[in-house]
Amino acid sequence: MEAFTTHTGRAVPLRRSNVDTDQIIPAHWLKKVTRDGFEDGLFEAWRKDPEFVLNQEAYKGATVLVAGPDFGTGSSREHAVWALQNYGFKAVISSRFADIFRGNSLKNGLLTVVLPQETVDRLQQLVEADPTAEVTVDLVDRQVRAEAPGQSKLTADFELDENARWRLLEGLDDISLTLREESSIVDYEANRPSFKPRTIEV
């Protein structure tokens, strides 16, 4: 996984709540067997509308998504995270993420930042007023900063549990970390009751 320390880029406001993963990447895209090439499927249905925010010239090339509450609900498809990343997003900000989506994003180095809804509202207003505003998502200081000429500067601290933060900052791969605990796994396995189910005899 690529490490994430800090990122600065323009942001796009997505004023919708309950954006489910079927909207982020529709099911017919899930037939692919790779982790890349999902960028055209991102928000596919909404992108047919020329007015949709991602289609607006001013937000082309934005790398931070500022979304409504309950982002990423529904299906566990990690393809939703890949699609956001393939499109160019480095971070998503919302007041609330669905658990599975959040877990998936952090495992892929897409930073999901939780901020209070009023801060998200302010941030959306700021980038709506000035789409060229630069937004910084700083994982080292756990802070989001945004600035635009003529607007008051926005600074907001966010929380992320220390362990998840460390793995992101270092770009660590979970499997290698777990494999260091091989002896604990072997011990656990040796003590499992015999009545536990097995799918095949080995």
Partner: peptide, 29 residues
């Protein structure tokens, strides 16, 4: 995500993403 179905038996059952699928395949944890 609908792995939650299996909780009907008193199992702790939950949906995971593909990175976690790989993790379980490799480590069973």
């Amino acid at each position: 995500s609908h792995t939650s179905t299996h909780g009907a038996f008193g199992a702790l059952a939950f949906g995971i993403g593909t990175s976690q699928v790989e993790h379980v395949l490799a480590t069973q944890t």
